[in-house]
C-alpha cells in the first residue's frame, strides 16, 4: 500500500487525538516497517489494518466509521494535491464516473505498483447513480466517506444507500440519489 495512505492516516489521528495516540498505535502494533512511514514508500497493507483495529479499540469507535472519517480526510488531501482531477468534471456524477476510467488510469501511470479498487458506475437517471465497489481490501467504508465529500464538493446534497452484494464486503453497491 502506498506510503501516503499511512502518513495521511497518522496525520488524521494526530489531528483528532494528538501525537500520543499516534505513538501509542505505533508502539503497540507489530509493524515490520517499524512505523517510520514516508509518502514515497510502499508498505504492507496489513499494517494499516492493525493500526485501524487498534485505534478502534482505543477510541471505542467502529472500524467503518473510522474509515468513513479517513475518507473525508483523504478527499481534502486529494483535492489539494491533485486539483486537476476535480476541475475536469463539472458535476458530481461526472466526477464519480471519471474515477475508474480517468483518475485510476492516471494514478497507475504515476505508480505502477498501486493497488486500486474497481468502481462500476451506471447512471439510472439524471438524479440517480449506481456505483459498485469491488476490492480484496474490503474498505468500502473509505469509499463511502470519499463519495460523501465529493457530493459535498459539487454542492449537490444527496442520499446514499449502501448494500453489500457480497457478505464479506468485497463487493458493495452504493445508490446515490440527489435530493430533490
Amino acid at each position: 500500500m502506498k506510503g501516503i495512505v499511512f502518513t495521511e492516516f497518522l496525520e488524521m489521528v494526530e489531528q483528532h487525538h494528538g501525537y500520543a495516540t499516534v505513538d501509542f498505535l505505533l508502539e503497540n502494533c507489530d509493524l515490520p516497517s517499524g512505523g517510520s512511514y514516508t509518502a514515497v514508500g510502499t508498505y504492507d497493507h496489513r499494517e494499516i489494518v492493525q493500526l485501524i483495529s487498534l485505534l478502534s479499540n482505543k477510541t471505542e469507535t467502529p472500524i467503518p466509521s473510522l474509515l468513513r472519517s479517513f475518507g473525508h480526510h483523504l478527499f481534502g488531501i486529494f483535492n489539494v494535491t491533485y486539483p486537476s482531477f476535480f476541475k475536469k468534471a463539472t458535476s458530481s456524477f461526472d466526477f464519480l464516473e471519471s474515477i475508474e476510467h480517468y483518475i485510476h488510469v492516471e494514478v497507475r501511470k504515476l505508480y505502477p505498483d498501486a493497488e486500486l479498487p474497481t468502481f462500476h458506475t451506471k447512471r439510472i437517471n439524471s438524479n440517480q447513480l449506481e456505483m459498485i465497489y469491488v476490492s480484496d481490501r474490503r474498505m468500502s467504508a473509505l469509499a463511502y466517506g470519499l463519495i460523501e465529500k465529493a457530493m459535498e464538493f459539487y454542492k449537490e446534497p444527496c442520499t446514499i444507500q449502501e448494500e453489500h452484494i457480497d457478505p464479506s464486503g468485497q463487493e458493495v453497491k452504493f445508490l446515490i440519489t440527489k435530493d430533490a
Binding site: 501525537y19 500520543a20 505513538d23 505505533l26 517510520s36 514516508t38 514515497v40 514508500g41
Partner: peptide, 25 residues
Amino acid sequence: ELLKRRLAREIKARKEAETILEQKA
C-alpha cells in the same frame, strides 16, 4: 520520550525517503 521517538521515526523516514529518491534518480 514521545518527542525523541517521533524524531527518531522521522529521521528514519527521511533516510528511507532519500534512499528511495536516490534509487529513483
